Simulated assay, not measured.
Amino acid sequence: MTELLDLARTIALEAGELAARRRREGVAVAATKSTVVDVVTEADREVERLVLGRLQDARPSDGVLGEEGASVSGSSGLTWVVDPIDGTVNYLYGIPHYAVSIALVEGEPDPLTWTSKIGVVLNPATSEIFTAEAGAGAFCGERRLRVGGPTPLNLALIATGFAYAASTRGAQGEVIARLLPQVRDIRRQGTASLDLCFVADGRYDAFFERTLSPWDHAAGALVAREAGARVTGMRGAAPSSDLIIAAEPSVAARLEAVLDELGAFDAF
């Protein structure tokens, strides 16, 4: 798999350079998706076309699942899961916290059943690149990553995110209001793939979010897991749009229990 990790890293770096160049030139909304605040830029589409082309040239038998519409069936049993620009709203506003995310999974491209093989997450604005290969650890550049140690929940820095639908965000906000007094603080930076990598690097104690799409967490979840985090979904299921929690195992268990008590699993 090492050559496939090298391939993903090379493509991510090229895609990140294109995204950064387009950001310098100026970015505008090209369309909206699920709601008026769920935006896509022409750069999202252009970067995805680049990634898809490079993958098809190098791996014509593999499938591809991309956020902006790229969907290619393969015959190899492997699928590349691509978010060309994760954190598009940050990207649109010039906030230097967005990512190119590329994962390789085995099996059907469904997070409930797939087996993650490779994950690469690049922040073009900072040049930080996070990589992981199943069974081989996680890295930021050449530095091996390790999740933070056990932390009491009241001292834990927790990252999260919110859905695009206004009614869902309202329900999520009510949960956060009840969670906030029980933790050190909350962070919401708007790029799930990087949030997961920050858990891997001990910059956050935990991350949780609902309503994520497969490409939002495919690569970052593997980085976090390979750094020693427990990455799980709702009540022990695999991570999915229902829920993803990533943290040092004891922190993850405590956070999941508190969220359940707060009604976070039943809020929407």
Rank of each mutant, 00 (worst) to 15 (best):
L92Q: 11
L92R: 09
G94D: 10
I95Y: 15
I95N: 14
P96W: 10
P96H: 11
H97I: 04
A99Q: 07
E106Q: 14
E106Y: 00
G107P: 05
P109A: 09
P111G: 05
P111T: 06
L112W: 01
L112I: 02
T115E: 14
K117T: 00
G119P: 04
V120M: 04
V121C: 04
V121G: 01
V121Y: 02
N123H: 03
P124W: 05
P124T: 03
A125V: 05
S127C: 01
E128V: 02
F130E: 01
E133S: 15
G135L: 10
G135K: 10
G137R: 12
C140D: 03
E142F: 01
R143D: 10
R143W: 01
R146V: 08
R146Y: 00
V147A: 07
V147T: 13
G148H: 10
G148K: 07
P150G: 09
P150R: 13
P150C: 05
P150L: 05
P152T: 07
L153E: 07
L153G: 05
N154Y: 09
L155R: 15
L155I: 00
A159T: 04
F162C: 01
F162T: 12
F162K: 11
A163E: 11
Y164V: 12
A166M: 12
A166H: 14
S167M: 06
S167Q: 13
T168R: 14
R169V: 14
R169H: 08
R169T: 14
Q172I: 06
Q172M: 14
G173K: 13
E174V: 01
E174T: 04
A177G: 10
A177E: 15
A177R: 15
R178L: 13
L179F: 12
L180Y: 11
P181Q: 07
P181K: 12
Q182A: 14
R184I: 01
R184V: 01
I186R: 07
R187D: 04
Q189D: 13
G190Y: 06
G190L: 07
A192L: 07
A192C: 04
F198G: 00
V199P: 01
V199N: 02
V199Y: 01
A200K: 03
Y204D: 03
D205G: 13
A206F: 02
A206H: 03
F207E: 04
F208C: 03
R210F: 07
L212S: 05
W215D: 11
D216T: 00
D216C: 06
G220V: 06
A221E: 13
V223P: 03
A224V: 06
R225G: 04
E226S: 13
E226D: 12
E226C: 14
A227K: 10
A227Q: 11
G228V: 11
G228I: 11
A229Q: 11
R230A: 15
V231Y: 06
V231N: 07
T232Q: 14
T232G: 09
M234L: 15
R235Q: 07
R235E: 10
R235Y: 00
R235C: 00
A237S: 15
A238D: 09
A238S: 15
